[in-house]
Simulated scan of single mutants.
Amino acid sequence: MSERAGFQAPPRWWTPWVRWITRFELALGAVALVIMFVLVLVQAAQRYLPVGGWSWTGELSRFSLVWLTFTVAGVLVTTDSHIALQLVDSLKKPLVVRAVRVFACATVAVIGVGFAVEAWELVSTQGDLRSPSLRMPLAVLYFFPFLGFVSTAVRGAVAAVVFAVRGVPAAAEPTEVHA
Score class of each variant (00 low, 15 high):
S2V: 03
G6W: 03
G6H: 10
Q8F: 05
A9N: 12
P11T: 01
W13K: 06
P16K: 00
W17T: 09
W17L: 13
V18D: 11
W20D: 09
W20H: 10
R23T: 11
R23Q: 13
F24R: 02
F24L: 14
F24Y: 10
F24P: 02
F24C: 11
E25I: 01
E25V: 06
L26P: 05
L26I: 10
A27P: 04
L28V: 15
L33T: 11
M36H: 08
M36A: 14
L39E: 00
L39R: 00
V40I: 13
V40G: 02
V40Q: 08
V40H: 11
L41F: 05
V42A: 13
V42R: 12
Q43L: 11
A45V: 07
Y48E: 12
Y48C: 10
V51W: 15
V51R: 12
W54D: 13
W54H: 10
S55M: 10
S55H: 09
S61M: 09
S61Q: 09
F63C: 10
S64T: 06
S64L: 07
L65C: 06
L65M: 13
W67P: 04
W67I: 13
L68I: 08
L68W: 06
T69D: 05
V72D: 03
A73W: 14
L76V: 00
V77H: 00
T78G: 12
T78W: 00
T79R: 14
H82G: 07
H82R: 05
I83Y: 03
L87K: 12
V88Y: 09
V88C: 07
V88R: 01
V88H: 02
S90N: 11
L91E: 08
K92Q: 10
P94S: 10
P94L: 04
P94F: 03
V96F: 09
V96Q: 06
V96I: 15
V96P: 02
V97A: 03
V97H: 08
V97N: 05
R98P: 07
R98M: 06
A99S: 07
A99G: 07
V100N: 02
R101T: 05
V102K: 02
F103G: 12
A104D: 14
A104Y: 12
C105N: 15
A106F: 12
A106G: 13
T107G: 15
T107H: 04
V108N: 01
G112I: 08
G114C: 11
A116D: 05
E118R: 07
A119M: 15
A119N: 12
E121N: 15
L122G: 06
S124Y: 03
T125L: 05
T125F: 04
G127P: 06
L129S: 14
L129Y: 15
P132V: 07
P132C: 06
L134V: 09
R135L: 11
M136Q: 07
M136P: 09
M136F: 10
P137Q: 01
P137I: 03
L138K: 13
A139T: 12
F143Q: 05
F143E: 04
F144D: 01
F146A: 06
G148P: 11
S151Y: 02
T152N: 02
T152Y: 04
V154D: 00
G156W: 01
A157E: 01
A159L: 08
V161S: 09
V161A: 15
V162A: 08
A164I: 02
A164L: 11
V165W: 08
V165M: 09
G167N: 06
A170S: 10
A172C: 04
E173V: 12
E173A: 15
T175G: 01
E176N: 15
E176C: 06
V177G: 00
V177S: 11
H178Q: 07
